[in-house]
C-alpha cells in the first residue's frame, strides 16, 4: 500500500504545549491505582512489549546470544509468561541475533543511521540501514539529525526519515527523536509530527545514551501527536519510550497513559514497545509477587 511520497508541506501546524499543564496531566495518570487482576494483566502486557536491548561499544556475539536466550526464557519457573517483543542491537549483531532467535517469533530490531549521534553522511546512514536489513533485521530504529532539527532545517530531517523509510519498505521503521536533546516539549511535538508525516511506523523517545530519556511528559507529548494524526487520518502509529523505564510501576503508568489517550487498540506490542534492558526483571519480580504473595529477591531472576 505504498502511497505517494510524503511531502513536508503537508505537515499540519504543531500545537503549542504548556509544560506545567502536561506535568499536571501526567500526575493524574500516576495516581491511577492498578491492583489485582488488572496488575497481573498489565505486567504481562509490559513483558510482551519489551524490546530487550543491548547497545554498547563492548557488545560481543556472546553477549547478544545470551540476551537472545533470555528473551525467549524470561522466567521458566512460571508458566504462561509471554516472551519479549523484540531484541534491539547494533547492525553488526543482527546476524548473530537472527541465528539465536531462529526458532522464535521474537523480532530483531536494529539501530541504524549512525546511532546514537546520527552525525554522519546521508550515504553512510542509508548503507547502515541497508546492511541491517540485509542481515535480517525486522525493524529499524533510526535516529534523527538533532543538530539539523535544532538549527531549523526541518526539511532535511523530514527528507532523511522519508529516505530511510523508502529503504525499509514493508519493514517497520522506528524514528528516535532523542528528546533529551530537543530542549522542550514544543520541539518534541514538532519532531514527532515531522517523523510521523515522513513515514515513521513508530516514534521513539531516546537512544538511551542521553538523559533525560523517556519521561512521562515526553511520552505524553508524543502520544498526543500520534492521537492527533490518527484522528485526522485514521492511520495508527506506534510508540516506543526508551531509556529510564526500569520499574514496573513506571511501565504500568505508561500503559495507563496509552490506554487513556490512544485507547486499548494500542495496548499490544504491535503498537507499543518499551526500549529497556533492566525492566524485564523488575516486572518479573512484581509478577511473581502477585502469584506467590511473597516479595522477591533479584538473586532468583537471571540477569541475562
Amino acid at each position: 500500500m505504498k502511497a505517494h511520497k510524503p511531502l513536508f508541506s503537508q505537515i499540519p501546524k504543531s500545537p503549542t504545549i504548556d509544560k506545567v499543564g502536561v506535568e499536571e496531566r501526567v500526575s493524574r495518570f500516576q495516581t491511577r491505582s492498578i491492583k489485582g487482576t488488572a496488575k497481573m494483566q498489565g505486567l504481562s502486557m509490559v513483558l510482551s512489549m519489551i524490546d530487550l536491548t543491548t547497545l554498547e561499544g563492548k557488545d560481543t556475539p556472546n553477549k547478544v546470544r545470551q540476551m537472545c536466550y533470555k528473551a525467549q526464557h524470561l522466567h521458566d519457573f512460571q508458566d504462561g509468561l509471554p516472551t519479549v517483543a523484540a531484541v534491539c542491537v547494533y547492525p553488526t549483531m543482527v546476524s548473530i541475533a537472527k541465528d539465536a532467535l531462529k526458532d522464535s517469533s521474537i523480532k530483531i530490531a536494529s539501530v541504524s543511521t549512525a546511532f546514537p549521534s546520527g552525525q554522519s553522511t546521508f550515504d553512510v546512514k542509508k548503507s547502515d540501514t541497508q546492511f541491517a536489513l540485509d542481515a535480517g533485521a525486522d525493524e529499524i530504529d533510526m535516529v534523527i539529525s538533532r543538530g539539523k532539527f535544532l538549527s531549523g532545517e526541518y526539511n532535511f530531517v523530514f527528507d532523511e526519515i522519508a529516505a530511510i523509510k523508502e529503504i525499509c519498505g514493508q519493514k517497520r521503521l522506528k524514528v528516535i527523536l532523542e528528546t533529551g536533546e530537543l530542549a522542550n516539549l514544543d520541539q518534541v511535538r514538532r519532531a514527532s509530527d515531522i517523523a510521523i508525516h515522513a513515514g515513521a511506523d513508530f516514534i521513539k523517545t531516546s537512544t538511551g545514551k542521553i538523559q533525560p530519556a523517556a519521561t512521562m511528559q515526553v511520552t505524553y507529548t508524543m502520544l498526543m501527536a500520534i492521537k492527533d494524526h490518527y484522528d485526522r487520518t485514521g492511520i495508527m502509529v506506534g510508540m516506543k519510550p526508551a531509556g529510564g523505564i526500569s520499574t514496573s510501576k513506571l511501565a504500568l503508568h505508561n500503559l495507563v497513559m496509552v490506554k487513556e489517550i490512544l485507547g486499548e487498540a494500542w495496548l499490544t506490542n504491535e503498537w507499543f514497545r518499551f526500549g529497556a534492558s533492566s525492566l524485564a526483571n523488575d516486572v518479573l519480580m512484581q509478577y511473581m509477587k502477585q502469584v506467590t504473595g511473597k516479595y522477591q529477591s533479584a538473586d532468583y531472576f537471571t540477569i541475562d
Binding site: D18, K19, V20, G21, A183, N184, P212
Partner: peptide, 8 residues
C-alpha cells in the same frame, strides 16, 4: 500563570 521549568 504557569512557570515552565525549562531544562529540568
Amino acid at each position: 500563570h504557569p512557570i515552565e521549568q525549562i531544562g529540568g
